[in-house]
Design a protein around this nucleic acid. Structure first.
Lengths: 111, 111
DNA sequence: TCTGAACATCGATCGCTGTCAATATAGGTC
DNA sequence: GACCTATATTGACAGCGATCGATGTTCAGA
């Protein structure tokens, strides 16, 4: 799946106000494509609901029921899109949801 | 692409409040998968921004640059998910965005 | 009833992506 | 250094879905 730069470039104007052009549609669709996978949605949900609003990979693999490489792959995509912040602490890597990016996506659907 | 019943079944609890289960993730991901295609996003945008908030298929094919069967296919998916209302008037079929369903999807991303 | 227009369905193709096993990398501990 | 743990990368495969041409269906008008 292609990487999407979400926050930069003044993404994303409200869909419903005025017709978006093809480039904007491509970028916004990239964001929704990320949200269009049950595993990634559950990852976001697990991380957001985790104590402290953050979780490391080892805390996510088992409840998700997916292999470690797959989880790592999904986390990378979500991070590249700006939906997850990433912080390495010694051996562990902690992820937390970036509310601003999430809001950007949500606002694109405003009536 | 599988059909998603969006409004019915009390869909969709906010992702970020509490961990969603696999069934909810599957359903919600289905909705975002629909939004994860540039053509469908532009369809929604074109229809919403069209005078009267509605448009028939013949007004959408050309600005989208996709074949009529493809446009018809996308419209069917969006309609099945409840994102578009469909009304047949003699030879023409008019589609309009359903704001309630859109809000349902948007609210799932609430912080 | 014939014709043309608008829309839907079918069948086939082809690129994309979610998945995992295997392997690599990096950090901690002894 | 040797070993273990946590995470990332790689390579390969299988299934899905976006697309289009061809065809079907429905409706209005002559």
């Amino acid at each position: 799946m292609r990487t999407i730069a979400l926050i930069t470039q003044g993404c994303c104007p409200p869909l419903m106000k005025t017709p978006i052009d093809e480039a904007e549609a491509e970028r916004l669709a990239g964001a929704f494509k990320l949200l269009g996978d049950p595993g990634r949605l559950r990852l976001l949900s697990l991380i957001a609901a985790h104590p402290g609003g953050e979780a490391c990979v080892c805390e996510l693999t088992e409840p998700l029921g997916l292999s470690q490489p797959t989880v790592s792959h999904h986390l990378k995509l979500l991070h590249q899109a700006g939906l997850l912040e990433r912080e390495k602490r010694s051996t562990w890597v902690y992820y937390k949801v970036d509310p601003a990016t999430l809001k950007t996506v949500r606002d694109a659907l405003a009536i």
